[in-house]
Amino acid sequence: MHTTRTGIACALCLTPTTDVVYQVLSAQSPFPQREDVQERWCPAGCDQLHPVEWKETMPLLPGDVAFLGLAAALTCYKKLSRLKSGSGRP
C-alpha cells in the first residue's frame, strides 16, 4: 500500500518533506511490517530549485543506494575488462 506522509526536515530550508511510502501489510498484524520511502520532495521546492545541494545533503532513498551500487559495479567491471585486455590503465 502506498501512502503520503510528512517526512524528515529538509536540510536546506528545514521545512518538513513530503514522502511517498510503501507499506508492507500483514494479515497477522494490524500494523505495517515494513516501510520503504519511494519518493521524497520539499514542499518549498528546494529539490527543484537546488537539485545538486538537495542530493548532497538529503539522505539517500533505498532506490538511490541500489542505483549507486549498480554504478559502482559497472565501473569496477569496466576497469577489470580493460586490465584483462591490456588496453591501458584502469
Score class of each variant (00 low, 15 high):
Y22H: 12
F67K: 15
L68N: 11
T6H: 08
L70V: 07
Y22N: 06
L49H: 14
C13M: 02
P16W: 03
V24C: 07
A73H: 07
Q38D: 15
D36P: 07
T18M: 05
T17M: 01
E56P: 06
A71P: 04
L25C: 09
G63E: 02
Q48S: 13
K84G: 09
L61E: 00
A44H: 10
T75N: 13
L70H: 11
D47G: 02
E53G: 13
L25A: 12
A27K: 13
C10Q: 02
K55C: 05
D47L: 02
L74P: 01
T3W: 05
H2M: 13
G69W: 03
G45K: 03
P43K: 09
D47Q: 04
R40F: 00
P16Y: 00
K78V: 02
G7Y: 01
P51M: 02
T3I: 12
Q38V: 12
L74F: 06
T3C: 07
V37G: 06
T6W: 00
V37T: 15
Q38F: 11
G63A: 10
Q28C: 09
L68F: 04
E35M: 12
E35I: 10
T4I: 11
A44F: 04
L68D: 06
T18E: 08
T57M: 15
K55T: 06
E35A: 12
A27G: 12
E39Q: 15
L61F: 02
W54T: 10
F67V: 13
C13Q: 05
K55H: 11
T57Q: 15
T75Q: 12
L25N: 09
A9F: 03
G7Q: 02
M58K: 03
G63Q: 08
C76A: 11
A71T: 04
Q33L: 13
R40H: 05
A11V: 04
W54D: 06
K84Q: 13
E39K: 10
L14G: 09
V52S: 12
A66M: 08
T15N: 12
A9K: 09
G45W: 03
P43V: 07
F31I: 10
